[in-house]
Amino acid sequence: MTSLFIKSIKFLVGGAFIVVLLIALYGSVRGVIKEPPAETAEHAMHKHPEELKLASDGPFGKFDRAQLQRGFLVYKDVCSTCHSLNLVSFRNLKDLGYSEAEVKKIAKDWGTKQPVFDEKGGTWGERDNVPSDRFPKVYYPGTGTPPDLSLITKARHDGAAYVHSLLTGYDKKPSAEALAKFPEFAKTPDGMHFNPYFANLNIAMPPPLTQDGQVQYSDGTRATVDQMSKDVSAFLVWTAEPTLETRRQAGFAVLGFLIFAAFLTYGAYRSVWAGVKH
């Protein structure tokens, strides 16, 4: 009797899990049939980012330094009002092709200053930025919490393409068909803006790039809204991983070595096993 119980314990345990799963399955199937999942507004209106091609794409991609500099200008003149870039230091800008003196000047002239605590007086003051400083934090009093942009192209699916589509997506309004299903989207709540590329569809950020020439480019590139958003997207790919090019270069060297090693070890393996049937 006891041994029969021990022998069948596996069936009892397995059976218990399976029965509970079947009960759960019955519940889920019934739920789906009785109340088919309703289409959500996100499902009806959310758009995937449009494809964006950048010089840094692909295993052989390299940053387009001129574009990164333009993108930095867009960040400086437009985004930096609300968005910080706190994981990046001013000294990193040398990677974009700025000289030491230019970096010093950019840091010194930066609108937001570095906070300094005066130990003796117990008060907060501020000082100019220097190249070794990180881009200062930005405190934004309005609605919404503008995220730090340093890692934004890594922190969102489709990275740069998402940033570019979001910046240029404000004029895309919901279709009449979608509005008929979700009439609440006919009027965007106060202080919000409809953008089909944003996960929640309504975004607190007003359209930041609105007219051509909003940023003064000095290299002759026409500063259209599309161009500016492309440039700033490319810049934010760089801020997210300034070591991107080094990484790929190292990768080719390592792979080359390993493929050479693979041929050798294969030869060694064949020679060791030569004549041994296996």
Binding site: V254, L255, L258, I259, T265, A268
Partner: peptide, 25 residues
């Protein structure tokens, strides 16, 4: 040794190739 050290050596190099593709690309 040397039979399976040789075979495992080959395996390790192939493993490192796939590993490097992930790390670097």
């Amino acid at each position: 040794h040397p039979y399976y050290t040789a075979k495992d050596g080959l395996g390790v190099v192939v493993f490192l190739i796939l590993f490097s593709v992930l790390i670097f690309f």
